[in-house]
Amino acid sequence: MAKDTVASTSQADRISSVAGFIAALDQSGGSTPKALSQYGVEAEEYSTEEEMFGLIHQMRCRIMQAPDFTSEKVLGAILFERTMRGEVAGMPVPQYLWEERGVVPFLKIDKGMEDVQNGAQILKPIPGLDELLATAREFGIFGTKERSVIHEANAEGIEAVVVQQFELGKQVIAAGLVPIVEPEVLIDSPTKTEAEALLKAATLRQLDLLEDGQNVILKLTIPNEAGLYDDLADHPRVLRVVALSGGYTTDDACERLSKNTKMIASFSRALAEGLSAKQSDDEFNAALASNIDKIYSASL
């Protein structure tokens, strides 16, 4: 138990104050085919779901074992449940990340979203959540991630998303983990700027209701107004504010992020941009290193 406590403390310190970014390696069932296609693996190259997940696991292992995927620039990595239960280099993935790479492991726990209502999508119910959180603790997971989506500047819809996110976050905290609260505003929303102002206000209201020790990480779309979320980053209940790439290219996401000095990256598509199953290890590692360098620099 003592070792677990020491590890948790050092992980919290890394996430809250060390330079770097959080890698998002958590594509799930619905997004896996697209992620594989971007990686140069087309649908005709696999015939079953098991084969599909096997191929995406190979891609993730290749990323995690790359020379530049270390604690020097990567603070944490968000995993899909199958990845958490899998192995890399003969070790459970969360153990490998922390013990071999110094990278803090997180787990995606949401099961998708409901249909759009009031311009937003709240989370679907998460069956067996308490058991999943307990299992995550056993695997050495530090925190969780749960994603909702905001389509437009609708105050009622945004409030519903934020309230649900924080209620779920409290359940995660009670299980001994740290939640990444992720109410994503779509980058192509025609009312993105207005939605972000409403989101900030709703988030501050929920943060002010948290008790001492109920700490969260916020994962937000890079705002149109640079510095908009600085007040959130300064809130005593926030360990870190991280940015999702949301479909921006790596260069565009990094340029936008660099203007928000109190946000760091938590990129998925931008991290994997330009990577291909057909590349040699040297080519793959060089492309990934370039992305890591760009994302790290933008997160400073």
Rank of each mutant, 00 (worst) to 15 (best):
V181W: 15
E167C: 13
F139S: 02
V116C: 09
F142T: 00
T135P: 02
N154E: 08
T193L: 13
L132Q: 07
T135H: 10
I158R: 05
A226V: 10
L123G: 11
E182Y: 11
A233N: 00
G128N: 08
H151E: 06
Q206M: 11
G112R: 07
R101K: 15
L239Y: 12
L198R: 00
E194I: 10
E138C: 04
I126Y: 05
R237L: 06
E138V: 10
K170G: 13
E99W: 09
M113Y: 07
L186S: 04
P127L: 09
I222Y: 02
G143I: 06
I187G: 09
I126Q: 00
E182S: 11
P223R: 02
P223Q: 04
E196L: 08
A202V: 01
K219G: 01
P236G: 08
A197D: 06
A201Q: 12
V162A: 09
E159H: 10
V172H: 05
P125S: 13
D231L: 06
V216W: 08
L133T: 06
A202N: 03
D110N: 05
D115W: 15
G176I: 10
S148M: 03
Q214G: 06
V162W: 04
I150A: 05
I122D: 03
L209H: 01
M113T: 12
G169W: 10
E99I: 12
V149F: 14
V149L: 13
W98N: 03
R101P: 10
A195F: 12
E182G: 11
V181D: 10
I222P: 00
P105A: 12
E182L: 13
Q171H: 13
A120N: 01
A195N: 07
L133V: 08
E100P: 11
A174N: 13
A201P: 03
T193V: 15
F166V: 03
T203L: 11
L228A: 14
E156A: 15
E167P: 01
G169V: 10
E167A: 14
R137L: 15
F142W: 09
T144Q: 01
K200G: 07
L204W: 02
K219M: 02
G112V: 12
I150F: 05
F166I: 04
G102I: 08
L168I: 11
D208H: 11
G102K: 02
H235P: 02
I187H: 08
A136R: 02
A174V: 12
D188H: 15
Q206Y: 07
V181L: 15
E225C: 08
V116D: 07
N215W: 12
V172N: 00
P223I: 09
R101H: 10
E159T: 08
L228H: 08
K111A: 10
A120P: 00
L177P: 04
R237S: 11
L210A: 02
S189Y: 14
V161R: 03
K124I: 04
A136D: 03
I187P: 05
V178N: 03
F139I: 00
L177F: 14
V238W: 05
A136H: 06
E182M: 13
G157P: 07
V104W: 04
N224D: 13
F166E: 01
P179K: 04
Q171K: 15
D115C: 13
V163E: 12
